[in-house]
Design a protein around this nucleic acid. Structure first.
Lengths: 216, 216
DNA sequence: ACCTGTGAAATCGTTCACAGCA
DNA sequence: TGCTGTGAACGATTTCACAGGT
């Protein structure tokens, strides 16, 4: 298919496929069909094939996919054969937790620096990582080769912080502030809005249970 | 429209509309049209009307929506006129950060208890909240009237923890473990997978810039 | 016989455009 | 005239179903 426009839903699933393949590889499996993959991990086999076909013809008819080969291909497609250096703006509890979280679980992402405006926090050491003055963001970002930024500041500061990040030339941003942000066309912004997620749980709980005990 | 099947995309947007209305209300605005709302908050006016029409006829032709009335309606629809009590399983950095995060920003959600299996953590006090032995989850959940659970444990423990939550009769669960979980039909599960989000940023960075400087 | 890659169909979601009411 | 509520058009995504390769 080799299309130019790959949907975000597809790339999100590539992450999932990669996880599955890592599991299969660690079990010593050599090949896997889209059908086996789908049944085992509760996916749809046609979707797996379509997603993969966007990037090349990785499968062999009558056989399936070679686990190690496909894993390597996905790793490359997702850019996980490169290291990424993450800067987190906001050294509150959330920023500190994320510094830990990424550091422990993601070998391809290293948290290189935390930033804050609070003089009481600047200079502190959180785990392996130092807290810098956010006023020096651009300078430190360059020195530390940061290519991914995480916004973990209160909502009202999120937009100016995003502009600071943009000006520093960083193209990939993850936002935890519960507010939509406006970013330039060349910047990839992912907002994870915990408030919306919580309120959607609240909505579900507010729905009356149907007679058979199921929810709507 | 009064439909039975409301999509999650719609309910997520209700949260956003509610935020916008709160902002307008605090400015003293009495009425607002879907068009004004859309232009100001970068939304689509037809979508706003369709979303709202799922739940009733709140608008007045020629006038728009009454800000306070619509805000109250959305608050009710989202179940935010009730308090929710949250239990967080996993008292690591992430669990602790979430305990703080929700406590500070969400007046409708109170973190009632943290749970962990580590004897070193049990009995600790994190902010206002005590850490209990996860073995006593069901008992404490009932005593504390917990109706929302948050999974903040490592991936390999997430499924058994979900089953524990289910058995305690809790119907709304937010999962931060980077793994898909299987839940019963009557349980609403939201997974927030930071690994997928990060890898999708990595994918974006791996794409070659197009000649005009834009990304694909 | 098995399994991929892919058009075609079905489903789901968004946007348009306008009838109808204040 | 201004604005909602909604059928219809459009667009995106998922699933089906099968031709064709091994």
């Amino acid at each position: 298919m080799k299309a130019d426009k790959i949907s975000e839903l597809t790339t999100n699933r590539l992450s999932i496929y990669l996880r599955c393949l890592n599991e299969l590889a660690s079990e010593g499996r050599k090949t896997v069909s889209s059908d086996i993959l789908a049944k085992r991990f509760h996916l749809n086999s046609a979707q797996i094939r379509k997603d993969l076909a966007c990037f090349g013809e990785f499968g062999v008819r009558g056989v399936g996919y070679y686990v190690e080969n496909l894993r390597d291909q996905l790793t490359r497609i997702l850019g996980l054969d490169h290291h990424h250096r993450v800067g987190i703006i906001g050294a509150g509890r959330l920023g500190a937790a994320l510094a830990d979280y990424y550091g422990f679980t993601q070998t391809n992402f290293t948290v290189a620096a935390l930033f804050d405006a609070d003089p009481g926090k600047i200079g502190e050491q959180i785990g392996e990582v130092k807290v810098y003055d956010v006023a020096n963001f651009s300078k430190i970002a360059k020195k530390e080769s940061i290519d991914v930024a995480v916004i973990a500041v209160p909502a009202q500061f999120a937009q100016p912080v995003l502009e600071l990040i943009s000006k520093a030339g960083i193209k990939a941003v993850m936002n935890f502030a519960p507010t939509p942000l406006l970013a330039g066309e060349d910047v990839k912004l992912k907002t994870i809005d915990l408030t919306i997620s919580l309120e959607s749980l609240s909505y579900f709980l507010a729905q009356p249970a149907l007679p058979n005990g199921q929810q709507k």
